[in-house]
């Protein structure tokens, strides 16, 4: 099955690449969009293979990344439009979705998307409790209660915010 996004018919005339997600679905991407990702660019330079298999990115995430890449590869759009697209792109997304996205940007090495997503994640995290962060990132607290209390005591000012949220 070949899925094309709305840019598909326009860019199909140019060279295009097929990217396969870990779910087995295939996406047709123009080469100009694919080379925005440093790792895809490397693969394309090394071999002439037009089919790239990504074993750790699922359908949903890959579709989002490709939508981002195609928009940024579009020369017809001004920088301002691209910037507002970036804002739209991350707004309203769940923290879980962002986690998958940031992982995908790391695999594909799309720096600008990585920054946008990291900024959004930081925005969500900034007023959260430590416990929330541990839960979301599945971190085991490896401090002893005494050591943790000591850290909190040293920088007590960071905790006195009345607006901290836990959900």
């Amino acid at each position: 099955m070949v899925t094309t996004d709305e840019k598909g018919p326009l860019t199909a005339k140019k060279k295009s690449v097929i990217i396969r997600s870990c779910d087995g679905d295939e996406f047709l991407v123009s080469e100009s969009a694919a080379v925005l990702s440093t790792s895809l660019k490397k693969i394309l330079e090394e071999k002439e293979d037009r089919l790239i298999h990504l074993s750790d990115i699922d359908n949903k995430t890959l579709a989002m990344v490709i939508a981002y890449l195609s928009t940024h590869a579009d020369d017809g759009l001004s920088d301002d439009l691209k910037r507002s697209f970036d804002q739209e792109f991350v707004s309203g997304k769940e923290f879980d979705v962002l986690k998958y996205l940031v992982l995908a940007t790391d695999t594909l090495q799309v720096t600008c998307l990585c920054y946008t997503v990291a900024k959004k994640m930081a925005d969500i995290m900034k007023n959260k409790l430590v416990e929330w962060v541990r839960r979301e990132f599945d971190i085991q607290n490896d401090y002893t209660p005494e050591a943790e209390a000591e850290i909190r005591r040293l920088d007590a000012w960071a905790w006195d915010d009345r607006q901290l949220e836990d959900d």
Partner: peptide
């Protein structure tokens, strides 16, 4: 990349995560 985008206050707070 995520931590560097947090306000200073949150960075201090998240030192106790792990």
């Amino acid at each position: 990349e995520i931590l560097i985008r947090l306000p200073e206050k949150s960075i201090f707070r998240f030192m106790s995560v792990s």
